[in-house]
Design a binder for these strands. Structure first.
Lengths: 296, 296
DNA sequence: AATTATGTTTTGTCCAGGACAATTTAAGGA
DNA sequence: TCCTTAAATTGTCCTGGACAAAACATAATT
């Protein structure tokens, strides 16, 4: 069960590291060092794939492959998380221990318990409070837990799936406001995370906006077409912290030129935390500021 | 607006043809024939990308690239669909004109009208009939319309988003069956389409199963871990028609070896239409057969 | 005629090793 | 300390070759 080997395509699929990267790392750093089959094709043992996964996670935290691949397994395991953004841990409305408790049912793989606890909080806090003070910090917490390996991939998937469900359910109870400000919600092609979109949709819908949710991964040209077809006043994009920051500004500028005149462009999510101001684009760093932006 | 060029990574993303394939076609067949930038990197004009998309669609219908790429644009456009599966176009419970009518609000970009019409059908047909006789054929119809260019990308996104919402809403009304057969639902990493999963979830939940929906894009090893953690009896994967068929069998066999003993593996969706039988794996070609599989 | 066996062509994927631009780090100077 | 400049790092793309699996065509057998 454990001496399975992966071909290079399977490793690419499971680690997210491209074939080119896998080959060039082998050439440069000597790792991974797969076996070969009779045809000379690479065969990666499970252990090496696991290590690649770990390396990948550490790189998302700001480490660099050249250093990581020179370390031993033990050193890798005890490596401190290294976030360059030295923002001073803004005070959250909810304690870490409480977040951890909320996540407990997920770790026990008990969906129903999780849903129940969350629904209670929703009833107690009201939708706005629930989204801003529970779901937002909890999602961030899950992200950190994933980076540090405290939570498994499939557990994170379960959390995302259940939370989406909660949000969709909650949004469905809100009255339709066809005459509210029309806002298009989506993400760019390489941004898969849709949870942020749903949070924004919830908050803005509460505030009386009319949201058109297109889900994630829209080609830029299609975003522009959709904006025209739906006659929206605002296009709002979400970027997760996993999205490569350096691409964001360029993408937004390109989209800005494609959009019909008069359409505002908003960008939000953890990925835009510290980007330089750009003319014509509004950075919406928190859910609260999204509400403010709506008034302007 | 039309003289945009794509680099090879963008073309891979937009057409689903790998970089290797794009390069080897150029070498062998002389198409595509992209321009080059100052660095010698390929730059594909929009027209060539469009043609690649068309070729891709025709290949999904059973044509072969060597023939297709030798044809002129006109010949390509008038090529008959060539399905090797000589199944006689199974009679659908719903006429194409009716499907087309249902899609009309989407083309007018009017979400509310679409939702209303669909909710009426749901009430009339009951959930099972709705899923099997409306959503399933309609989704297939949208897929075809998208392939033939009759519907725009953002319209397809809107359809998907709204239909997901309908299904989630409908599933939420079903009673929980914690003691039913436990079934894990997900897709492999390169398979983004989650609509099929929701359809299966609806049908199986109606039949009394306890579904654990993990959403799309799970690494194989994580699927196996999730199956163990959630103690499921069945792992069900969905493959859309866009997924490269040749990879599917290998993927399933690999997953089969990873799964805990005694866990069944089901595969469904349009992508598995005509695959050879594989020991240990159950191909579920229709929603109705999924219900049957549940009894076995 | 239908089926099976065998040879041929087509096609996707992988390989090696080189190159370059974009980014990050290090070094130097004001 | 801050800014500028040089060096190192790293991901992506390139060419052209190779091979196995699949699809197809052809011949042989039942």
């Amino acid at each position: 069960m454990n001496n399975i080997t992966y071909n290079i395509a399977a490793v690419e699929r499971d680690t997210g590291l491209s074939k080119d990267v896998l080959r060039v790392w082998e050439r440069r750093y000597g790792f991974p060092q797969p076996e070969r089959d009779s045809n000379g094709d690479r065969l990666y043992p499970t252990a090496q794939v696991e290590r690649l996964r770990l390396v990948r996670r550490l790189m998302d935290q700001g480490h660099r492959p050249g250093k990581l691949l020179a370390l031993s397994d033990e050193e890798l395991a005890t490596l401190p998380s290294r976030h360059k953004t030295d923002k001073p841990e803004e005070p959250t409305a909810i304690a870490e221990t409480e977040l951890d408790e909320l996540l407990e049912p997920i770790r026990r793989h008990h969906a129903a318990d999780f849903m129940m606890a969350m629904q209670q909080r929703l009833a107690r806090q009201g939708m706005l409070g629930f989204v801003e003070d529970t779901i937002a910090p909890l999602t961030e917490f899950v992200g950190k837990a994933w980076e540090s390996g405290a939570i498994k991939v499939f557990e994170e998937h379960l959390y995302t799936e259940l939370t989406k469900r909660l949000l969709r359910q909650a949004i469905a109870t809100l009255p339709a406001r066809p005459q509210g400000r029309r806002i298009l919600l989506t993400t760019v092609p390489d941004e898969r995370h849709a949870l942020g979109l749903l949070m924004v949709e919830a908050v803005l819908t509460i505030e009386g906006a009319h949201c058109i949710q297109l889900g994630p991964q829209m080609p830029l040209i299609e975003i522009a077409r959709a904006a025209a077809a739906h006659q929206v006043e605002v296009v709002a994009l979400s970027f997760s912290s996993a999205f490569p920051q350096r691409q964001i500004t360029g993408l937004l500028q390109q989209l800005e030129t494609l959009l019909p005149a008069g359409v505002e462009l908003w960008a939000g999510g953890a990925g835009i935390a510290n980007l330089p101001d750009t003319p014509g684009i509004r950075f919406v760093t928190t859910l609260a500021s999204a509400r403010q932006a709506l008034d302007a």
